[in-house]
Design a protein around this nucleic acid. Structure first.
Lengths: 201, 201
DNA sequence: ACTCCTATGTGTACAGTGTGAACATTGGTT
DNA sequence: AACCAATGTTCACACTGTACACATAGGAGT
């Protein structure tokens, strides 16, 4: 029987490389994206990647973009419908923060890739769209619900983001790495609640 | 004239390597610690380093320890003497947080080395002594001054650390990288004040 | 003072990395 | 049918961390 000869041209190598990059980085983060290895997995020579990406860094950026797209797609709009508008807005903001931390814990590698995993200067100086707009929207809803005044709203994105990102970092690479899950759960809630409560300080 | 022949043995190679490591990582962080390069700078063969460190990772750890020691040494105990005990405790806690952020901004490379710069599993799961005890002490002083109740004190280290570390990360590698200095100043203050205010939420 | 041991430094070598340059193979357009 | 631009391959280079065998020297014990 004639064995199916692998065609010289791959078909959609770019997508295949990104896919392999997703697999490669899932466990260990950005540093586990080895160009030659990714190409090998796809069954293509190492330099073939250069027809689609300038650079290892460029492939990493593409992988990051894909992760971000999936995160955005998977963000359930599930807002609680019970309670006053005020409590609903608050609950929504809390769940955005807790969702960020949750993603970091469930997909540590991908989290590291997406959020500041690359070092090249020109890379994302603008915040990643998906989760970021979810945050600003939730904050705007807080204002609309009267749960946050204008002074407190100003710059609140950065305060919230700082808290949850820092917490994620402590859990992933910092001293909370070996803390038991339920304790991390409690601390996560406390961190989110604290930063929200402090917004209009 | 007899040129001063470099002696076969260096004298204190270990310290020299750590020094060179400090220089190397000062600008760009952990990934700029190239073992061969460090050895070259010291004027010694690449493998000489292995007589003093198991590993590149081990040298990096030694560099981190040295940075931490310097930070601890340079932490001025300058407490404000004016105001009530309560305001003094608060001011002290604020300055610990702002000091952390300040260090990150002034020495981004060293900051990255010390705070979770390495990825090896067994590395620092215990928090770095210097700044960490400063934080816990400041929090204890808050309790003593009646500015924080016991419920708020519980786990407060992690909340505070999360906020300032996350903020530093946003400024160093995140979307606040290109923000003007004075805006970053204001946001830093707001972040620290917010997390402190939220401690007893 | 002589010997020898051990700590410390050197040289060579290897596997693995990202990436540039020249060459090969196509599928689609004319 | 002929050609061209897109896509893959091969070869090569500089660089990394690190293992192994060897060289050197400083100090302890006789």
């Amino acid at each position: 029987m004639a064995q199916t000869r692998r065609p010289y041209h791959h078909g959609d190598l770019r997508a295949a490389l990104v896919d392999a990059g997703l697999e490669a980085t899932r466990a260990g983060g950005p540093s586990d994206l080895i160009l030659r290895d990714v190409a090998r997995r796809v069954g293509v020579s190492a330099n073939a990647a250069y027809r689609h990406f300038d650079d290892r860094e460029a492939l990493l950026a593409a992988v990051a973009a894909e992760i971000l797209a999936r995160v955005a797609r998977g963000m359930a709009p599930a807002e609680p419908v019970n309670g006053t508008e005020r409590t609903r807005a608050l609950e929504r903001l809390r769940s955005v923060g807790l969702g960020y931390i949750d993603f970091a814990r469930r997909e540590p590698g991908w989290f590291s890739v997406v959020f500041f995993g690359w070092r090249t200067g020109e890379a994302v100086a603008t915040p990643p769209p998906g989760p970021f707009v979810a945050l600003t929207d939730a904050l705007d809803a807080m204002v609309a619900a009267g749960a946050l005044n204008d002074a407190g709203r100003d710059g609140a994105e950065w305060l919230c983001w700082s808290a949850v990102h820092g917490f994620a970092e402590l859990v992933l690479r910092g001293p909370l790495r070996d803390a038991p899950d339920d304790q991390v759960d409690r601390l996560a809630v406390r961190t989110v609640d604290a930063i929200i409560a402090g917004l209009d300080a």
